[in-house]
């Protein structure tokens, strides 16, 4: 029923003996105490607020068991900024006012983290990339602007800087 697991989250290893039914999103929020990853719909996996990057891929953490991530590497919203510097995608949202209440924002940023490693540029491609996160506030227009801002910033990065901002 219980199992000892270790998950690396934002570079730090969290070890715990957990119920095998524990969802990854609850491991992140309750075991690691990283509450920036949100829970919206919680059942059907539709809202995307719980999105994190698991071994380089954006996934909905409410649709995974924590035991499945044993030994894996997870990046959450708390892992994006470095010291005082915002990640380029965060900076885009700051500059272009890409959020209102902010509930969807962590999931959106983690989805876009994967997209920005190989960004495509048309409005349609940007909108497709964020179709897995529902925002009830913004109407998405400012978010698309924010992503364009971030794409330009990422393209201006040197290969070394890129590695630093996109470690996984």
């Amino acid at each position: 029923m219980k199992r000892s697991i270790g998950i690396t989250i934002n570079g730090e290893v969290y070890e715990e003996t957990v119920d095998q039914r524990l969802l990854l999103v609850d491991f992140i929020r309750e075991v690691a105490g990283l509450t920036g990853t949100h829970v919206g719909c919680s059942v059907e996996g539709r809202c995307g607020a719980c999105t994190v990057v698991l071994n380089g891929k954006a996934v909905k953490a409410c649709l995974l068991l924590a035991v499945q991530a044993d030994g894996a590497s997870v990046l959450t919203i708390e892992g994006l900024a470095k010291d005082d510097a915002l990640h380029p995608i965060q900076d885009g949202f700051w500059e272009k006012h890409g959020l209102q209440c902010g509930f969807c924002t962590p999931g959106l940023l983690m989805t876009l983290y994967e997209f920005l490693q190989n960004p495509k540029h048309s409005d349609e491609e940007i909108r497709t990339a964020m179709s897995g996160v529902i925002c009830r506030c913004t109407g998405y227009v400012h978010i698309v602007e924010a992503v364009k801002h971030a794409i330009a910033a990422v393209e201006a990065l040197s290969p070394e800087e890129r590695k630093e901002w996109f470690p996984v």
Binding site: G48, T51, K57, V59, T111, F115, G132
Partner: peptide, 9 residues
Amino acid sequence: IGDPQIRNR
């Protein structure tokens, strides 16, 4: 199918 996160899994 679904959205990028669903397609990743």
